[in-house]
Computed example of a mutant assay.
Amino acid sequence: MRMTKNRGGMFRLILLCLTIILILANCKEEENLTPAQKLASRGKGLYVTNCSACHNQNPAVDGAVGPAVKGSNFELLKARIVEGTYPAGYTPKRTSQIMTRLPLNDDQIRGIEAFLNAP
């Protein structure tokens, strides 16, 4: 019986160590990014979480509901995401009005813009 308890404890210790190593590795990767890359990385997380279900995981490809959004600028993103409108003079790719508004701030929208315009 003691062998089993020690193995379980050892397994948990190894799992904890691996988790810590992965967290530290991710922190190291973040440190090596430029400010623009960090902004785009945060924007990617916001895009995947909030936008990809309708617009596609790949922003260069049309989604089931929303069009491709690769290359979108801040003015368009803010108007669509926050206000549910389009900038003056903009011709929409689709005429539907079903996009949900999201309470994102300017910094978050700039992150999404950075992701959508990253090479």
Rank of each mutant, 00 (worst) to 15 (best):
K93D: 13
S96Q: 08
P92E: 09
Y86C: 00
E83Q: 12
V82S: 10
Y86M: 06
K93W: 06
Y90S: 06
T91G: 00
G89D: 10
T95C: 00
E83H: 07
E75W: 01
T91I: 15
P87V: 14
E83M: 05
T95E: 13
P92G: 06
V82Q: 08
K70I: 13
Q97V: 11
K70H: 05
P67I: 03
V65F: 15
A79I: 01
K78A: 02
Y86P: 00
G71M: 09
T91D: 04
G66P: 09
P67K: 09
F74E: 07
N73H: 10
L76I: 06
A68T: 09
S96P: 00
L77Q: 01
R80S: 13
T85Y: 02
E75M: 04
I81G: 10
Y90D: 02
T85H: 03
Q97S: 07
R94F: 09
V69A: 14
A79K: 08
V69T: 15
S72M: 14
G71Y: 02
V82Y: 03
T91Y: 01
G84H: 04
F74R: 01
K70V: 09
V82R: 11
T91E: 14
V69G: 03
G89N: 08
A79P: 05
P67H: 13
E75L: 07
A68V: 08
R94P: 00
G84V: 08
V65N: 12
L76E: 07
G71R: 02
S96C: 06
L77R: 01
N73K: 12
V69F: 06
K93C: 02
K70C: 01
P92Y: 05
K70E: 03
S96M: 08
G89I: 15
L76R: 11
S72T: 04
V82D: 00
G66I: 01
S72E: 06
Y90G: 03
R80K: 11
Q97L: 14
N73R: 08
V65R: 14
G66D: 06
Y90N: 09
F74K: 05
T85Q: 07
Q97T: 15
L77T: 01
Q97M: 07
Y86F: 15
T95Q: 12
Y86G: 00
L76Q: 09
V69D: 02
G66T: 02
R94V: 15
V65C: 05
